[in-house]
Amino acid sequence: MYQVVHSKWEVIVNRERCKGCEICINACPQENLSLSKNVNSQGYHYVEFSEVGKKGECTGCKICWWVCPEYAILEVRRIEKTDNGS
């Protein structure tokens, strides 16, 4: 048996699809999403995810995933680290 020692949420962003409309940035209650300074191949500033936002960690509410019109936010998923290292 192993124990979950660390568990947190993560937002997977497809940079190429993102058009920087900022809807998800506004929608995030924890303000974990922000616009990158870099641009993708289409010339848009894309969205970046940081684990800790202005108001705390990502809670996995998936609002960003629901409102993203480009399907650039591919998945909001839970990452679990266990004491056996996996």
Binding site: E16, R17, K19, C21, P69, E70, Y71, E75
Partner: peptide, 23 residues
Amino acid sequence: VKQFSSIFENGVTTYCPGCEHGL
């Protein structure tokens, strides 16, 4: 990452930023 079989992995919509057509 979970993929939908009906959506292209690298498909980019042709819509303007913020348009809900892509949604």
